[in-house]
């Protein structure tokens, strides 16, 4: 039940921005605003999904059953973001898209992040967990690489270094570095409770 609400609420930013765009309320460059908004929410949900483990280990708050929903929301936003880039922004121009995806590190980083979250979304069901067994954890550790790529992609989406993407990158870096802490440190805190 709570998960259904999480999905519904999580998709509100996409729906609201889409409605504003249809009503011509997104300013002078509506496609660009929509594209950026969707990308930003993809990163936000990616960050939230990466917060679940440290929250459990450091604060004893167990949100594990919502992690899949958060990850899937990140995937949906990434999918919307890429769809707007391919369709609304570039108008399905194959030559431009091919050049973007093969030549520009900025776009390649975004695409790598998108491909990873797509694989993770596709293998997020119970059947995959059962059949992949141990390999499932290994596959889903790729989320760290997705987070790294997404954060750098966000920084590169501006002409200059900007405060906002740097803040997101710092948060992402902290969450990723946390994973490098020795297990004794992390579980030690958990055991103390």
């Amino acid at each position: 039940m709570i998960r259904a609400v999480l999905y519904a609420v999580g998709l509100v930013p996409a729906a609201a921005t889409f409605a504003m765009g249809l009503a011509d309320r997104l300013g002078a460059d509506p496609v660009n605003v929509f594209e950026r908004t969707l990308g930003l929410w993809a990163i936000r949900f990616l960050i939230l999904s990466l917060c679940v483990t440290p929250l459990r280990e450091l604060a004893g708050i167990n949100l594990l059953r919502y992690r899949r929903a958060l990850g899937l929301l990140a995937f949906w936003y990434a999918l919307f973001h890429v769809t707007v880039y391919v369709g609304l922004d570039q108008g399905f121009d194959g030559a431009v898209l091919l050049a973007d995806i093969t030549r520009r590190p900025f776009v390649i980083l975004g695409m790598v992040a998108f491909l990873i979250v797509s694989v993770l979304a596709a293998t997020s069901n119970a059947w995959s967990i059962r059949h992949l067994g141990r390999r499932w954890r290994a596959v889903h550790r790729m989320v760290y690489l997705a987070g790294l790529c997404a954060a750098v992609h966000f920084i590169l989406s501006f002409k200059l270094l900007r405060v906002e993407p740097l803040l997101y990158a710092v948060v992402m870096a902290v969450l990723l570095l946390y994973r490098l802490l020795p297990g004794t440190v992390r579980r030690g805190r958990l055991a103390q409770r």
Binding site: P30, G91, A95, F106
Partner: peptide, 25 residues
């Protein structure tokens, strides 16, 4: 001659109005 991070082959006209589908590149 492209910008290293994006193509310069086309452009988005500003202010066409009509929201998302106001003006194609």
């Amino acid at each position: 001659v492209d910008h290293p991070r994006w193509s310069q082959a086309s452009e988005r006209p500003i202010g066409a109005r009509g929201g998302f589908f106001g003006a194609a590149r």
